[in-house]
């Protein structure tokens, strides 16, 4: 287990945003975090990413109890987060974006040849087929952009990759592309935390599923213990759906 939470919780003033959530992330495995809006997904990943600090339970990195002071702390321990907005500059080329803020040096300057080569090789190793690393990021599709952000996190030494709703803004085909890169990162031995509200995206790629609802855990399931149908209905709230169906029925 690279990363683990045990009964973790967080409150903002009188609001209990997260209560008693336990989950684990293993190298070479994908842990999916599922939940509707307001379920506590973002609070959980912000704790894992070092943005917030938990105030109950414990957070373990490599089995040792830890408390991150800042996102930099988490990053230094190999936990990288790719947010939805991706932190990329549309007008800049793929390789310039790839190394932005961590440019390889060569003497006084920026080792441009190395940056180009490494960006191309890293993207290729992830199976990302970008025709030209010189093209501006703005000309890439949403899925390709996500993929570049993932490849960047992998290259800069991430052991755990936290992906915040990487497929939510994408069409079916594009989402498929991103799922493939998630699988590729997993195959390279990274632990992946995949946050989504779509069980159809989570089920094919996930090894474990943590379901959140109104700030608490509905349980963490291994893939063997849960079917896609069960996951979908848990996710949607079985009872609520039946009620909704009843309500919407024509007389």
């Amino acid at each position: 287990m690279i990363l683990q939470t045990k009964g973790i919780g967080k409150s903002f003033g009188s609001v209990l945003a997260l209560r008693e959530v336990s989950m684990s992330v293993e190298a070479g495995h994908v842990t999916c975090v599922l939940g509707d809006n307001g379920a506590g997904k973002s609070t959980l990943i912000k704790i894992l990413a070092g943005v917030h600090q938990h105030d109950a339970g414990s957070l373990l990195v490599d089995g040792a109890e830890t408390r991150f002071g800042s996102p930099r702390d988490a990053l230094d321990r190999g936990i990288a987060t790719v947010y939805q907005d991706l932190a990329m500059i549309p007008l800049m080329s793929v390789w310039r974006n790839f190394f932005l803020g961590s440019e390889p040096r060569k003497g006084l300057g920026f080792d441009v040849a190395k940056a180009r080569r490494v960006a191309r090789d890293e993207l290729r190793a992830m199976g990302i087929d970008i025709r030209d690393v010189d093209q501006p990021v703005g000309t890439l599709s949403g899925g390709e952009r996500q993929s570049v952000a993932i490849a960047r996190a992998v290259y800069f030494g991430a052991r755990v990759l936290i992906l915040d709703e990487p497929t939510s803004a994408l069409g079916v085909k594009q989402a498929g592309v991103v799922l493939r890169y998630i699988a590729r990162a997993r195959d390279r031995g990274l632990g992946v935390v995949f946050i989504t509200h779509n069980p159809h995206h989570a089920y094919p790629v996930g090894d474990r599923f943590l379901l959140l609802n109104r700030g608490t855990s509905l349980g963490e399931f291994a893939k063997a213990d849960i079917t896609r149908e069960k996951l979908t209905s848990l996710m949607a709230g079985e009872a609520e759906l039946k009620e909704l169906a009843h309500e919407l029925e024509r007389d």
Binding site: M92, F99, R105
Partner: peptide, 8 residues
């Protein structure tokens, strides 16, 4: 590197 930052 500063050039990269200027564009950014």
């Amino acid at each position: 590197r500063q050039g990269n930052w200027i564009f950014a």
